[in-house]
Amino acid sequence: MNIRNFKHFLGEALRSIFKNRLMSIASVITVASCLLILALSYSVISNLDHMLSGLSNDLELSAFLDNDISDTEIDAIRDEILRIDHVVDIHFVSHQEAEERFQERFGDGNILRGLEGRNALPRSFDIRVNSVENQEFVKNNLDLLIGRGVTDVVFVEDVAESFVALSRGLQIGSITIIAFLSAVSAIIIMNTIKLTVNSRKNEINIMKYVGATDWFIRWPFIIEGVLIGLFGALLAVGVSLIAYTRVVGYEADIPLINFLTDFMPTSAIFAFLIPFCVLLGVAIGVVGSTISIRKHLFV
């Protein structure tokens, strides 16, 4: 395709988009909706993965202690824990430290107001294990201490597994939704371009009789599909960029979110999302337009 032809094809495509503008706008919005869901799913999954990698770097077990046991009993429990294979470190968390941690994490002291000095938060041991694979073994041994001064053992891996399951579920769900919406978008683009093809059936027919190649006929329709896909992608990227920036902006104001996750930077998310959405939008446009023009080329 030379520049002269490209100008002709682009002009034809733009003319046609303008002529069927309502249908073109509908197609752009459909593509944008599909890609917006993709952007949303990708942002959530990426952040879940980010959280998981943070968790695996800091995998600890916590053994919560009965409020009624004495310091001597606590020391005995500590010795017993240290005797468990693979335990490399143990740290006692007093009532006061537990409260300090809570304040630190949730920022606002209002939740504990009125409970000061009542030892509302239990004492515990933070136990570090030499490797992630041995956490299960240590947890099983700690469980044997329940009822003997230990009330509960919290295994961060449980949380991690939940996150992994959630992340996988989201991945499968979003891939299904994306595939479905991509197909819907391609069909809508197909219908938009079919309108153009039908209104230009005569022209295509004449082009065939005077010796136009299939590609000469096809290009304006493909460019039309590409432009619709591209506009849809840019709209989706724009909306998701604004939304993500706002959510990340709320991070500093809402301590609970701050505790739950440390959001990935906008640049890291969109360095992938922008090219991917644009490519997928363009691909949807190309597929939709190629299918809609195909049967008209056999004259």
Partner: peptide, 22 residues
Amino acid sequence: SHKEIPYLRRQMGVVFQDFRLL
């Protein structure tokens, strides 16, 4: 082949009863 048809048609002009103008 289908791809070669345009080049065949460039060797012939066609006129129809209904003119087929744009």
